[in-house]
């Protein structure tokens, strides 16, 4: 980012580092950050399973393990379905956030 031509130009115009980051860097850095952020939503569930087992915390992860150990099929399938829905919602939010952050991106506009 900071090695690109337009940042060099902005610096040549005498912009401060903070303004460069604010006006030129921030949005560009945000895009991959958001992708990674929402892509790792599914890790949340996997992580909670292990962490709640370690610290004996009664949460969704613990419920998953108990459902599997006690053959509670509806609960297990429900958790899987719900977590998939959660990840799907997260990815949709990320998709919706892209055009706001970067106006060059337009969803569903393939006619160009």
């Amino acid at each position: 980012m900071l090695h690109s031509d337009y940042v060099l130009f902005a610096r040549a115009q005498g912009e401060s580092l903070w303004n460069i980051v604010r006006y030129h860097g921030f949005r560009n850095i945000l895009l991959p950050a958001i992708t990674l952020q929402f892509a790792s939503l599914s890790e949340l569930f996997g992580g909670s399973v292990l962490v709640e087992q370690v610290f004996a915390y009664p949460g969704l992860g613990e419920a998953t393990v108990q459902a599997a150990l006690r053959s509670d099929i509806p609960l297990l399938v429900g958790i899987v379905f719900f977590s998939a829905l959660f990840v799907y919602t997260g990815n949709t939010l990320a998709d919706l956030a892209y055009p706001i952050i970067d106006p060059r991106i337009r969803l569903g506009d393939c006619s160009v």
Binding site: G47, V49, T64, A68, V77, Y88
Partner: peptide, 15 residues
């Protein structure tokens, strides 16, 4: 497969 949490899916299949 990518959208399902990996460990939860593992538990489901193993079960």
């Amino acid at each position: 497969f990518f959208s399902l949490p990996h460990l939860v899916l593992l538990i489901l299949v193993a079960f």
